[in-house]
Amino acid sequence: MNFLFIGLDGFNILSLSQKGYYQFYPLLIVIIPAMHLFFINIDKDSKRLNYNELVHFIFPVLLVVLNLTAKRFLIAVVPAFWIKLFFSILFEAYIIYYTTITYAFLKKKIWNREPDLINMKQNRILKHWSFFIFYLYSLIVFHLIVVISMNLKAAGNDNTELNNYKFFPALLLNIMYFKILFTPEILYGYNVMHDKIKQHNKSNFILTDLWILDASEEINNVQDRALGKKIAEYTSNYIHDIEKLVFKHEIFRNSNASINDIANKLKIPKSHLTFVFKYMSKVSFTEFKKIVRIHDALQLIEKDYLKSNSIESLANKVGFSSYSPFYTTFKEVTGISPQVFIQQRKKGK
C-alpha cells in the first residue's frame, strides 16, 4: 500500500510528498507497529480481532496530527531545521523502540521456544523464516534511519534524499510480502495442531512428522543393518499397523502398555519394532507413547469429554497413572498447560 500510494503520487493522482517535515514514507508509521503485531500473532490462536492491539496505532495517529499542526502553525515562528530535527529524532526513537521489543519477543517466544514434539517440522520452519523476515525488516529500519539522518543535511525542507532511496526498501518489502504470501507456515503460526488432527485421515500416516520414511542414515551395527535389509519392504506396513493399533484400538490407554504388547498384538518380532523406533522414528518409543496419549487427550477434549469429567479423569483415561505426569507430558508435547489449552479452545469458540 505504501509504494502503491507513492506510485499514484508520481502520476499526480495523489499529493502525498508535499514539502514539510513528514520525515518518513506514507503509511510507514503504520507498517512499524503492524510488523510487531504480525510477529506477536504468530504465537496466538485467535480468529477474532483483539481490540487491545489497536493501542499500538495511537502514537502513529498522534504523530500525523502533530506533524500537520507543526506545518500549519509553527513554520512561521520556529526554524525549519529544528522542526525537521524534532520529527526525525521522534520517529527514529519510535522505530527503534518497536524493533527492540519485537526482537525481545521473538528471542523469548519463537527462537528459544521449548521444542514441540508434535509439530517439530513446523517449529523449525517458523524459527528460520521468522528470523529471515525480521532480518529483512531490520535492514529496512537501518536503511530508514540512515536516510532520515542524511535528509537532515539536505538543503530546504523537501524529501529529496528520502525519495532517492525508495528502491531498496521497496525490493525488501516485496521479497518479504511474497514470502509471507506463499508460505502457509508463516501465515498460520504455531497453532496448526487442530487442523493437522482433522486432516490426519487424508494422509498415509497420522504422525507423519515423526517418521523417517526415507531414512538415509548409515547403520553402523552389522546386525541392525542386516535386519534393516530384511524388513525394508515391510517397514511402511509396520508403521501403518502401529498407528492403527495405538489410535484406533487405543492400546496406550492401558498405563502398562509396552513395546512387547504391540509386538504381540501385531504378531511380529519385537526386534522389528525396536528397529523401527531406533532408525525410522525421530522419537523414542517412550516419547512416542507420550505423544499418542496427548493426541488421544486432545481428541477427547474436542469431543467435549471435560463437560462431564475432570482433567484427572481425562489423564487416567488416556493412560497416565495420575494428573502430575499428564500435566508435565501435555506441556512438553503441546508447549502449553492443559488449562491454557482449554481456555484457548473456549475463546476460539
Results as ranks from 00 to 15, higher is better:
I197S: 09
I197F: 03
K198Y: 05
K198V: 10
Q199K: 13
Q199F: 12
H200R: 10
N201Y: 13
N201A: 15
N201E: 07
K202T: 14
K202A: 03
K202Y: 12
S203R: 11
S203C: 00
S203A: 09
S203M: 06
N204F: 04
F205R: 01
I206S: 14
I206K: 06
I206G: 00
T208F: 09
D209N: 06
W211T: 00
I212E: 00
L213P: 08
D214A: 11
A215C: 12
S216K: 15
E218L: 09
N220Q: 10
N220C: 01
N221M: 00
N221L: 03
N221K: 03
V222P: 09
V222W: 03
V222A: 13
V222G: 05
V222H: 08
Q223C: 00
D224W: 13
R225A: 11
R225E: 11
A226D: 14
A226M: 10
L227W: 04
L227G: 14
L227T: 05
K229T: 13
K229L: 09
K229M: 09
K229W: 08
K229I: 03
K230C: 08
K230E: 15
K230I: 11
I231F: 11
I231V: 15
I231S: 07
A232D: 13
E233H: 10
E233P: 01
E233L: 06
Y234V: 15
Y234K: 14
T235M: 12
S236E: 15
Y238I: 07
Y238S: 09
I239T: 08
H240T: 15
H240R: 09
H240E: 13
D241W: 05
D241G: 08
D241Y: 10
I242Y: 05
E243M: 07
K244W: 05
K244Q: 04
K244V: 02
L245W: 05
L245P: 05
L245R: 02
F247K: 02
F247N: 14
K248S: 13
H249E: 15
E250G: 02
I251S: 06
I251G: 01
F252H: 03
N254I: 01
N254P: 00
N254D: 14
S255R: 05
S255G: 12
S255C: 10
N256M: 07
A257D: 07
S258E: 11
N260A: 04
D261P: 04
D261W: 10
D261V: 03
A263G: 08
A263W: 08
K265R: 02
K265S: 13
K265G: 01
L266I: 11
K267E: 13
K267W: 01
K267R: 12
P269N: 10
P269T: 11
S271T: 15
S271R: 07
S271I: 10
H272L: 02
L273F: 08
T274W: 00
V276R: 00
K278C: 00
K278W: 01
Y279K: 08
Y279M: 01
M280A: 10
M280T: 05
K282Y: 06
K282A: 07
K282H: 15
K282C: 03
K282D: 03
K282R: 10
V283R: 02
V283Q: 01
V283S: 02
S284P: 06
S284Y: 01
T286H: 06
T286R: 02
E287A: 10
E287W: 00
F288V: 00
F288K: 02
F288I: 06
K290T: 04
K290W: 10
K290S: 11
I291T: 03
I291Q: 04
I291L: 09
V292E: 12
V292C: 12
R293S: 08
I294V: 14
